[in-house]
């Protein structure tokens, strides 16, 4: 899949940010429905771009507000309705955990693929895929590369699945967070048991900045806290600024799933270490590869 994403990416760059006719035919005649019970403009648009660049079409317009969901329609029924419109693939996001699996139970009968664009705190597999792809682009093989994930590791869905994904690719994981936002122990022990490797947990970004190959910053979300005071205790404790970025070792990179608030200073953006916009753009290359893999006409 990474090879396919690479192929699409180079093609795009070599052809002045366009894909030529050959690509525009890849998903011709295919329709992707976007079912976002919970809004996520970025994920949805990235999938839409991936579809449109390859000649596919989008059946959008679904929102939880205007849908039968409000009247108590189950996922099973919504999915069977939409599948009946002749779509090839459904990208969905839902606030309930396991929603994508429930959808897949029914879509299967119609030969329709379900792509999980995030289900509650459970999974967001294409985010992890694009994160790993971004590291793969920088380093090739990421075995034993030191990846530090920084910030809210307790509530954030991204860190949990990224940690597991890094395990699969053999990277070394460092977790940097304050005590109250540490990764739940079950995720740590799952990683350690599955991959037979230890995770190093730290509280200070300074302790890892010079050794890490990747510093993966995340946002600390205000809405996760019970009180403003609790939030203010930890808000802004991790900041990647110009001086900090300069201390990173040769070839090391800074990533962020975006949107950011103030964890990365604007004057870091133009440094070679800053890879977060490339990372976000990689989102559609990876999703394009995924869609082609699921739907493309095989020669």
């Amino acid at each position: 899949m990474f090879d396919l994403a690479d192929e699409i990416r180079s093609h795009w760059i070599e052809h002045e940010h366009q894909l030529d006719d050959e690509y525009r035919k890849k998903l011709k005649g295919k329709i992707m429905a976007t079912l976002f019970w919970e809004p996520s403009t970025r994920t949805r648009m990235s999938f839409e771009a991936a579809m449109m660049h390859q000649g596919g079409r989008i059946l959008g317009g679904f929102t939880a507000e205007g849908s039968s969901t409000k009247k108590g329609e189950t996922i099973a029924d919504t999915i069977r309705n939409i599948c009946g419109y002749g779509v090839s693939v459904i990208v969905m996001r839902h606030k309930l955990e396991g929603a994508a699996r429930e959808a897949a139970n029914y879509a299967e009968d119609y030969g329709v693929s379900i792509i999980n664009g995030g289900d509650g705190k459970h999974e967001h597999p294409t985010q992890t895929l694009l994160d790993l792809y971004t590291m793969h682009r920088q380093f090739g093989d990421i075995t034993e590369k030191k990846v530090a994930i920084v910030g809210d590791l307790k509530y954030g869905r991204t860190p949990h699945s990224l940690t597991y994904g890094l395990g699969i690719f053999g990277a070394d994981v460092y977790l940097v967070s304050p005590e109250q936002l540490k990764m739940p122990p079950e995720y740590v022990s799952e990683y350690e048991k599955t991959f037979n490797k230890q995770i190093v947990q730290l509280e200070k970004l300074e302790d890892i900045v010079e050794v890490a190959d990747v510093i993966y910053m995340t946002r600390i979300q205000k809405e996760r806290f019970e009180s403003i005071e609790e939030y203010q205790k930890v808000a802004g404790i991790y900041k990647m600024d110009y001086n900090m970025a300069k201390r990173m070792k040769e070839g090391a990179i800074i990533m962020h799933p975006l949107p950011r608030v103030n964890e990365i200073d604007l004057n870091v953006d133009n440094l070679p270490q800053a890879k977060y916009f490339e990372q976000s753009q990689n989102g559609w290359f990876v999703r394009a590869a995924l869609l082609q893999d699921l739907l493309g006409v095989k020669e």
Binding site: T74, A76, E97, E102
Partner: peptide, 16 residues
Amino acid sequence: TNPNCVTSHDYHAGQR
């Protein structure tokens, strides 16, 4: 027991 699990809210999922 997960309050955010689809099986706790969605009638059909709850039955499966």
